[in-house]
Nucleic acid binder design. Structure first.
Lengths: 206, 206
DNA sequence: TAGATTGTTAATCGATTAACAATC
DNA sequence: TAGATTGTTAATCGATTAACAATC
């Protein structure tokens, strides 16, 4: 599946669920497109990657489509998470209840800073970075979240990969490399802010 | 400037600054490309959008290049931020000291929840959502961060736009529409997590 | 000078969009 | 049936990559 399509899947899921919850049973590619800022062609083309068909003249059944998207995105699967970095960001993620609605369970938080080790975040107790390898294995961690300063990001990634994490979510303002079998998704806040700063334009720039 | 180029600029900035700080004076497009997972052609092509030239056989001067990138991305400009939503995520952003290093200053946090209004986040006191319009104007806010549940995201966006924000950073799992003059950058955590879940594959999916 | 790198043009690649036959 | 929507193919668009003359 092409990257751009994958990136749109969560958007489709959000919109279709919203429609389903509102009691709408069928939606046209045209409506989806308008709502998400795409063309109907793109929507229909994207849906060819799904194990699902629409019905001409009726559109796409929200119930089934949201199910297919949920399955493909693994919403119903339990995905076990470790957060590395117990700073503000790591803490916020660990407490961010909404993640569980989509099957993401934060099972552990670790940090290098000895002053943070032992503190509580919700029901979790922050572990030391030296526990990371063990934690990944005993907690059967699927995904590691990198919420540390940029300079340590690659080190943390290497530890996570070695310990057997299958996916990394990188929140640090650094690039992280990983072998092909380990997927990396970047959610670099500073990058997003900087893009906005640039787009917002040069008139502020003084 | 094409969107993909804009998205790469922060990466360039990060790498070039790192090299500069390490005392490296010149870098080749080849090195940059290898380090960031691009081709040398892409790097050179991207740099044509900058007001800056390399030197054949010597490469790009890290000092000047990091300056040009910083200016273009507005690192040295003061960008005034309001955060809407004083939940875990909003709180984390407000306390995230690293933002100031890139010129982002959180000037206010507001929330609908009366129980949060009046609480302190660092040096700031959480305001009510009804203060938003005033705050944007009196604090000369440039960028509004949407850190509320998906269902309220568009409402908040509309308020921010009306009040005169010039850019929106959307962290909610919803699409937000805005007039062309207001730039929107999405940093939807749930989307990133779901992409990873999908990429990590179907074997977890039971 | 010879060799290597830049800036830039041309070729390739892939994603998006348009168009249309098949379907209801 | 007529009209509108899907699935799919072909055309377009834009981004990436390759190639190469100019430069040091």
């Amino acid at each position: 599946m092409p990257r751009p399509v994958l990136q749109r899947l969560p958007q489709y899921l959000w919109y279709i669920q919203e429609q389903k919850d509102a009691g709408v049973q069928y939606v046209y590619s045209q409506e989806i497109a308008r709502e998400l800022g795409l063309t109907p062609s793109t929507v229909r083309e994207d849906f060819t990657y799904l194990d699902f068909s629409g019905q001409s003249k009726r559109g796409y059944a929200t119930e089934r489509l949201s199910g297919v998207l949920s399955d493909l995105l693994g919403v119903h699967a339990e995905k076990r998470i470790v957060i590395v970095g117990a700073g503000n960001l790591g803490r916020a993620l660990a407490l961010h209840g909404n993640l569980e609605r989509y099957g993401f369970y934060v099972r552990a938080v670790v940090d290098v800073n000895p002053r943070l080790v032992g503190t509580k975040i919700g029901a979790l107790i922050v572990g030391g970075i030296e526990d990371l390898t063990d934690v990944v294995q005993t907690e059967k961690i699927d995904i590691g979240v990198i919420a540390v300063p940029a300079a340590s990001a690659q080190n943390v990634a290497d530890l996570l990969i070695l310990a057997g994490a299958r996916g990394l979510l990188n929140m640090a303002f650094a690039r992280v490399v990983a072998p092909k079998k380990v997927r990396v998704v970047n959610a670099r806040l500073i990058s997003s802010f900087l893009q906005l700063s640039c787009a917002v334009g040069a008139d502020t720039q003084l």
